[in-house]
């Protein structure tokens, strides 16, 4: 699978940009949190596309955002 680039995203409408990012993020998130991956991905897609692109390149950034999202989810459902 080719890496997602800024120019690939720039040519798509916002909703489509988020979908493309979600397709890349989901398997990475699923590897960390199989049961919550769909909700975590949905939450992270509220973040700016430029930051999401960075997270795709940086496992540390993605991991810390996933941890944050899980904490928010757990508080939400508590």
């Amino acid at each position: 699978q080719e890496p997602l680039t800024v120019s690939m995203l720039a040519s798509a409408p916002l909703q489509e940009q988020k979908h493309m990012l979600g397709e890349r993020l989901f398997p990475l998130i699923e590897a960390i949190h199989p049961t919550l991956a769909a909700k975590i991905t949905g939450m992270l897609l509220e973040i700016d596309a430029s930051e999401l692109l960075h997270m795709l390149e940086s496992p540390e950034s993605l991991g810390s955002k996933v941890d944050e999202a899980v904490a928010v989810l757990q508080a939400h459902y508590a």
């Binding site: 989901f26 909700k39 989810l73």
Partner: peptide, 22 residues
């Protein structure tokens, strides 16, 4: 949208509607 349905779930292969489907 209702907080009960938050957050929206992303499923591969399904077009992303984001917050619209809440």
């Amino acid at each position: 949208g209702s907080s009960i349905n938050w957050p929206p779930e992303f499923h591969p292969g399904v077009p992303w509607k984001g917050l619209q489907n809440i």
